[in-house]
Nucleic acid binder design. Structure first.
Lengths: 231, 231
DNA sequence: CGCGGCTTTGATGTTCATCAAGTAAAGTGG
DNA sequence: CCACTTTACTTGATGAACATCAAAGCCGCG
């Protein structure tokens, strides 16, 4: 690669403070020379369940879904997450192989660093290690909490939850383009595709949302909150 | 062997290799002086959701359940776990306060070390840090996998799963005393108490299990495996 | 412009929660 | 230790929630 000759921009990266805090300039420089940025188009697989883990990856921009495949070949979506909330696959420190797949669901950019390099930093630099542990731990907690939250809700509550999740956690706006199919939503919340669609239609009829193909506008966010909580 | 004495016996503890690997003799000694063993009777709370985290705890013997309370006051059981599989509450590195409660469901012994002490070790000793990260990460992965697995199953599959979980993961025998109530099983697998009981009765009628109060004997483990998988 | 995948809606049946009522077991205070 | 109270367990009946099946419309893409 021509990384060596290019001026390294890692010191300006927003991740510097989030994942790579507590590293001095020369280490950041070294990190820069060891890293690679890789773009993924919507739909491409970033990590494959079962494959060997050799790299530490984090999402720089875009949106991804974590998922695994069931015995019958169905997809089970574990979570959908954006930059700063996703640091590699969680298995990297506990396993040799990926336990889940990761796919880009919007055009994304992933930063890739050899896992060995991160591990050596981890061993050498205690503060860095603590920051990373805390980050990995937070991500895990978030997934567990989300999964448990969804489990408590019924169909209507789950669909409402997903809409709010996109509006508040992912896009921070009441009008957004759904980055996933109806089926993927169903695989995420553990309901059938037909019933997800039916519920969206009900929301539309009740004036809670407006739908233009993939575009969703949340009209009555309060009602949606109530439905999500009550579910 | 495991007699409780005031003299420090940490160097012989089985956890030495599991959580506290990569520590030299003097550090182990220091750990010993900083630790406290605390017995809990069946039913006692070890950690309380929402309380401040000040200690690093791990289960030395016994059995515990992780749970949280829903908005309506119901218990949601996250997992049931035995020694070596539970190192403190998972939130300790990602949060100031416990996200989940932990309760003893069999007489248990918990080892308690000030969290600050663990954190200082973590910062100082990279190999220790790596071991701990790996352990915490594994525990998280296990919880996530279990939750996702359960979600895929129907009522019968879930009840079969729980019985197999106790028989294979917890007790390693086909005859065991259920450490939890029917209601707790229901809260664990996300089904109603009545239906859990009904399913157990069905298993009994079909000769798959035998039940004597709290004691369960698994008669046809293959059938149970099939029911669990097919669910 | 036609094919295949995604979406939508209705009809039907299964699965599961809820309610109710009764029994067994486990605490609790006298 | 017994009577009393409470909590856990059990079973049946009923209805609600949800999956499944089927058929048709839509949309993007070669």
């Amino acid at each position: 690669m021509n990384e060596q000759t290019k001026y390294c921009v890692c010191e300006n990266c927003e991740f510097r403070e989030i994942v790579f805090a507590h590293l001095d300039e020369s280490t950041i420089q070294e990190l820069c020379n060891n890293k690679e940025e890789h773009p993924y188009r919507k739909g491409e697989i970033i990590n494959h369940e079962g494959e060997k883990i050799t790299d530490f990856k984090y999402l720089k921009s875009g949106l991804v879904k974590l998922f695994r495949r069931t015995a019958t070949g169905e997809e089970q979506v574990i979570t959908i997450t954006r930059p700063f909330e996703f640091v590699s696959n969680m298995s990297i420190f506990s396993d040799e192989r990926y336990r889940y797949s990761v796919a880009s669901i919007e055009d994304s950019v992933v930063c890739i660093v050899r896992l060995d390099f991160i591990k050596s930093l981890f061993i050498k630099n205690g503060s860095f290690a603590m920051g990373l542990l805390s980050k990995v731990s937070k991500i895990n907690d978030k997934i567990i909490t989300q999964t448990l939250d969804i489990r408590l809700k019924n169909l209507v509550g789950r669909v409402a939850y997903v809409l709010l999740y996109f509006a508040k956690e992912i896009y921070n706006t009441r009008v957004f383009d759904l980055p996933v199919s109806r089926k993927e939503i169903a695989d995420f919340i553990g309901m059938s595709t037909a019933n997800v669609i039916r519920t969206l239609s009900d929301f539309k009829k009740d004036g809670i949302i407006r739908v233009f193909g993939k575009t969703i506008e949340i009209v009555d966010i309060n009602k949606l909150e109530i439905l999500s909580k009550r579910g």
